[in-house]
Amino acid sequence: ADDEVAKLLVDAYRKNDEDKLEEVKKRYNISDEQVKRLIRKVL
C-alpha cells in the first residue's frame, strides 16, 4: 500500500498539484514528514 500511496504523491508532486497532495494526505492520514519521505523513496 505504501508504494501505491508513494506513486500518488509523486504523481501529484510532479504535476505540482497541491490539491491532490492534500487529498492524498487526508485520505491516507499521513503527515507532511511522511509525504516527504515517501516522495524521496520514489524519486
Rank of each mutant, 00 (worst) to 15 (best):
N29S: 08
A12F: 05
K25A: 06
L43N: 04
D2S: 11
S31K: 04
S31R: 03
R14V: 12
D32W: 15
L9P: 00
V5D: 02
V35M: 13
Y28N: 02
L9H: 00
R27W: 06
S31M: 02
R37F: 09
N16I: 03
R37E: 14
K25G: 02
A12R: 00
D19K: 15
I39G: 01
R27Y: 08
R27Q: 10
Q34R: 05
K20D: 04
E18Q: 15
Y28G: 00
D2E: 12
Q34L: 08
D3Y: 12
E23K: 07
A6L: 14
K20A: 15
D19T: 12
L38P: 00
D32T: 07
K41E: 09
K41V: 07
L9W: 02
D32N: 07
K20L: 14
R40P: 02
Y13G: 01
N16G: 15
E18P: 14
V24I: 15
E18R: 15
I39C: 07
L43A: 05
L9D: 00
K7G: 06
L43M: 11
K26V: 07
L8G: 02
E4I: 12
L43V: 06
V10L: 15
N29V: 03
L9V: 08
V10N: 03
V42S: 09
D17A: 04
E18M: 15
E23V: 05
V35H: 02
R27P: 00
E33H: 05
S31Y: 01
Q34V: 11
L9K: 00
D32G: 04
L9M: 02
Y13Q: 02
A12Q: 01
K7M: 12
R14T: 11
E4V: 11
D19Q: 14
K36E: 12
V42R: 06
A1G: 11
K25F: 02
K7L: 11
R14G: 04
N16D: 06
K25R: 10
N16C: 15
V5S: 03
V42L: 14
D11I: 05
R37M: 12
E22S: 08
R14Y: 13
V24Y: 14
L21G: 01
K15N: 14
R27S: 05
D11F: 03
R40N: 12
A6K: 07
R27I: 09
V10W: 15
D32Q: 05
I30H: 00
D32H: 05
E4S: 09
K15R: 14
E4F: 14
K41C: 10
L8I: 08
R37Y: 09
D2V: 10
R14E: 10
A1F: 15
A12K: 00
A12T: 02
R37Q: 13
A6P: 02
D2H: 11
E22T: 09
A1M: 15
L38M: 10
D3I: 11
E18D: 11
V42A: 14
V24H: 03
V35N: 01
K36M: 14
E22P: 00
S31V: 02
V5K: 02
K25T: 03
L38D: 00
D32F: 04
Y13K: 02
E4K: 09
K15H: 13
A12L: 09
N16L: 06
A6M: 13
V5H: 03
R14L: 15
I30Q: 01
Y13T: 02
E23D: 07
I39R: 03
E22Q: 11
V10C: 12
R37W: 10
K36R: 14
Q34W: 10
N16S: 07
V24F: 10
R40G: 09
E33Q: 07
I30G: 00
Q34P: 02
V5T: 04
D3Q: 09
D17S: 04
L9T: 01
L38K: 02
R14M: 15
D19G: 12
D2C: 15
L8C: 09
K20F: 11
A6H: 06
K15L: 13
R14A: 08
K20H: 05
D17Q: 06
K41Y: 10
R37S: 12
I39M: 07
K25S: 04
K25W: 02
S31P: 04
D19I: 13
V24L: 15
E4G: 07
R37N: 12
K7D: 06
V10Q: 06
L43W: 08
L21K: 02
L43E: 06
D3K: 08
K15D: 11
E33C: 09
V24T: 05
A1V: 15
D17C: 03
E33K: 06
E18Y: 15
D32K: 04
L38I: 14
E4C: 14
L21I: 14
R40I: 11
I30S: 00
E33N: 06
L21P: 00
R27D: 02
A6S: 09
A6W: 14
Y28F: 11
D19H: 13
E18A: 15
R37V: 11
K26N: 08
I30F: 07
S31H: 03
E4Q: 09
L43F: 10
A1D: 13
A6G: 07
V42P: 02
K41D: 08
N29A: 07
V5E: 02
S31N: 08
R27K: 13
K15F: 08
K15S: 13
V24W: 05
V10R: 06
R40F: 14
L9E: 00
R40C: 15
Y28A: 01
E23A: 10
L43P: 03
E22C: 10
N16E: 06
E23C: 07
E23F: 08
V24E: 01
V35S: 07
E18W: 15
K41W: 12
K26T: 09
V5P: 04
I30E: 00
D11K: 04
K26I: 08
V24R: 01
E23L: 07
K36D: 11
D17M: 05
E22Y: 08
N29M: 07
V5F: 06
R37P: 02
D2T: 11
D11C: 14
E22L: 11
Q34H: 08
Q34N: 06
K41M: 13
D2R: 10
N29Y: 04
D32R: 03
Y28P: 00
E4M: 13
L43D: 04
